[in-house]
């Protein structure tokens, strides 16, 4: 059987490493000075930003995962996802640090065993051991579903 290559983009929330499918990443942005807050939305919804004339909502990944937000972090970035099988569903996720692009094989993904709850995220695509760290791979469709609720 032919092995399937996958490309992942990893990022950090506090000290934990996570990753998403890099092919569904549209942009990586530095945290802009102003995110326009939208009133009466769930607490993790940071607001909306202007990306080349388009309105993109931004969700704070740290709040989705029930982590503390350390405001002082200057590396915070927004990863704009463009889910491949959902229409008009671009969304920015706010993370502490964007780490790197990982090329790997699908077989390298092992079943995820999470210590403790990861906030609103109920399951992961799998976990990869990379440079002796665990990288949990987030299923983008699942993430979008959570945010859309």
């Amino acid at each position: 059987m032919e092995t399937q290559n996958i490309t992942l983009l990893s990022f950090k929330i506090q000290d934990d490493l996570f990753a998403v499918d890099a092919l569904q990443v549209d942009h990586i942005l530095e945290l802009p000075p102003n995110i326009t807050a939208v009133p009466n939305t769930p607490h993790y919804m940071k607001g909306i930003i202007n990306l080349h004339g388009n309105i993109i909502p931004v969700a704070d990944m740290r709040l989705i995962m029930d982590k503390e937000v350390q405001d002082k972090r200057s590396d915070a970035s927004i990863i704009v996802l463009n889910p491949s099988n959902i229409q008009d569903a671009r969304i920015g996720i706010l993370v502490d640090v964007v780490e790197e692009v990982i090329e790997t094989k699908k077989e390298a993904l092992k079943e995820t065993i999470t210590e403790g709850k990861k906030g609103l995220i109920e399951h992961f695509e799998g976990t990869l051991v990379f440079n002796e760290d665990f990288v949990h791979v987030i299923n983008i469709a699942h993430l979008c579903e959570i945010i859309e609720k």
Partner: peptide, 11 residues
């Protein structure tokens, strides 16, 4: 006027 998109449709 740009749409707010699917995530904010409850607005």
């Amino acid at each position: 006027v740009k749409p707010l998109g699917r995530y904010l449709k409850k607005q």
